[in-house]
Design a protein around this nucleic acid. Sequence first.
RNA 1: GGGAUGGUGGUGGAAUAGGUAGACACAGCAGACUUAAAAUCUGCAGCCCGAAAGGGCGUCCGGGUUCGACUCCCGGCCAUCCCACCA
Length: 823
Amino acid sequence: MAETYDFRSVERAWQQRWERDGIYHATGDSGRPKYYVLEMLPYPSGDLHVGHAKNYAFGDAIARMMRMLGYEVMHPMGWDAFGLPAENAAIARGIDPATWTAENIVNMQRQIRLMGTSYDWTREVATCEPEYYRWNQWLFLRLYESGLAYKREAPVNWCPHDRTVLANEQVIDGRCWRCNHLVERRNLSQWFLKITDFADRLLADLDTLPGWPDRTRTMQRNWIGRSEVVQFSFGIEGLDDKLEVFTTRIDTLYGATYVALAPEHPVIPAIKTIVSKKNAAAIDAFADSLKSKTELERTSLMEKQGLFTGAYAINPLSRERIPIWVTNYVLAEYGTGAIGGVPAHDERDWAFAKDNGIPIAEVIVPPDRDPTEPLTEPYCGDGRLIASDDFSGMTSVRAREAIAQRLIAMGIGKKAVNTRLRDWLISRQRYWGTPIPIVYCDTCGEVPLRDEDLPVLLPGHVKFTGEGSPLEQIESFVNTTCPRCRGHARRETDTMDTFFESSWYYLRYLDPHDERSPWEKPHADRWMNVDQYIGGAEHTVLHLLYSRFFYKFFHDRGWVTGHDEPFERLFHQGMVLYNSEKMSKSRGNVIGIDETAETNGVDAMRLFLLYVTPPEDTSDWTDEGISGRVRFVNRVWRACEPFFGRDAHVHDIPAATTPEEKALLRGVHVVAKSAIDETTTRRFHYNTTIAKLDELVNALTSAVQKLPDAAVTAYAVHALPVLLAPFAPHIAEELWHRLGHEKSVHLRPYLQPDESALEVDEITLVVQVNGKIRARVSAAPGLSEDEALALAMEESNVRAQIDGKQIRKRIYVADKLLNLVVS
RNA sequence: GGGAUGGUGGUGGAAUAGGUAGACACAGCAGACUUAAAAUCUGCAGCCCGAAAGGGCGUCCGGGUUCGACUCCCGGCCAUCCCACCA
């Protein structure tokens, strides 16, 4: 009685059964080797679409494969639940951020369950729960004690109308995204984490991560931006102050024709005292004109602008007197905020000097051609120095060392390492985040809370006026007592950047209900490090760098041991388009999980997402494409259906006699080999495995017609659910039970490929003459070279090609190819 | 400007130690079943010449190494992504 496959009821029924039986729970004491596979925890934004589904289908396939290969698999899921969208929903629609977030979590949990994923839900965490964020605060206190958390003034984007700090993403064309007022740069007192202390290790240890994509490692290297520099000082004519600058090209020092300062440079007030009133006023006006500009505008979008201050610096080696300028192109936040301008040998300095009438001056390191020929563009390469006193004649490499030593000997220079990486600003003047556990006491000043004071609870049901941080306006939150002197104190009202909690959540999963510590070390010892981390490439720098920083801190404290990197292997899955276009709500072209599960089924969706492209590539969701996988699922069902209810507990590999039988048996083992190889090599190109599954099902469909009683056919039917289990878990389980098996197919070992089943008994020998294919002959494997030659010579085509010529050389690749070189 | 990655039929892709290019699928065409359609099943299919046998060309372009190159090397072009005045 043919019944069609009713994926809707089958899929739902098995999801409930798996959940009830807890088959994906990792206890940690199974005695099997561990494998920790982790997908980046999602932000609970509302609804999932097939782009998310690709990530989960992929991670789940790996988790299921590893389980079936004998590992105890840690596969947790949770919610990166603090953040701005919840607060915006609160402001826009009057919903409490906690409520909005909780509703989204419920919905997304449902959707992720609906995908039939094998998460261990007993380990679920949500970062907005006090049970989670109290450990944020606890970790903050440990960082504070270690001197790694500190407060200082920093320039930030400030909207004068809304009286709040804005994230860079909230500044659109220099204006506030909500009120459209011009955004200013303002110095505010902010909390920072001293990630720069770890710069050298974060850089060097990238070499210990061969399982990361090269591109990601390169980007982190560039982001950290380590350079070895010489730092030295110019004297200022008429002042005792020294002007610290640094350079990677100290060999060009004799070519400096000006010094350029950032407008915020601390020496500027002193300079204003020694120049004319007119100059001083001009300096202020210039600084004001840049004040409203964001860093992006000041650097990338604007022309290089500058103003001569009226003051002069003295080149410490040449003793030349050179003008001091203020400019927009020198960054206050990088290095010392001042540079020596060498127009002849630096592109930016060249452009600036030309625009502002500053002399290019002498060439110090001429290019390899005629040194008397004037430069038409800056020369930035190395060379042999001229016009540099006793350094003349040296190569750039030698001169860099010699000049550095001279400056050091003069007591005004040193070698230093500079990084582009800046300390991590974690303060946010927002409500929906972890309160920073610091109070400001009227008498003791800045005081950290004690561990027993934690958690500092985020007050609920706050009013959003849209002006400033809501926490500032809640008296009962702000006013507190000092843990040191019991006097009056005010709480810090800034909250933490949400990247703080996502920098260590992978450890909380291991011990999610612990009330005495963020995690107990034995759990970390059992499960760390994450063996395979999966997530989007957009987190290449921030999240992955912060997590590495935190893990190194934990390692230094002895809270984790082993390799001091959290993620051994990293995989960036590609995104999903719909008909080659980005999915977006405004376009109305989002393919949701609910709809596609309803119309096509979850197994078809999972198979399609794994099949269209290798997982790292961008895939294109098309209606035709998904219907191809729906057809495949139905074909699987039809092939197995005649065997339902038959007593056929087939486990041993049956004898296969005819070529068709052998091919079918081989097809089964080819799939098993492919699935296992893709997993163990960590290539994860399951698209090729599924293609081989297609071939197997095609062969099986015809075998069910032509060889319904062959032992091999029944064997293949019973093998199919096992092979399919990691990729299409529902139909695999349903078939498995219909075929008469009791236990879940997901608790079985994967099918082990058998060498003799994989053997072929006929090969195609390719015969080439001078590298061109002239014939293909079938033969039994194991041909000798002479036998191959004899077979080749039976082909009239081959004989025609070598007729009248001499065979000069024979190349024989066993069972594959014979190439005859003739002339 | 710097860096990374990639360029294969109408389409997505396969070819993972240099050895049958285009597996598998989608779209297409033809046939079977059907009153018909859908579904399903079978077959065809890189391009050019040829009735066929067969031949020529073919993995962005140009060179090179090799008996043999999608694969390795050199030079170019194009695309995508990331960073971009970092001294």
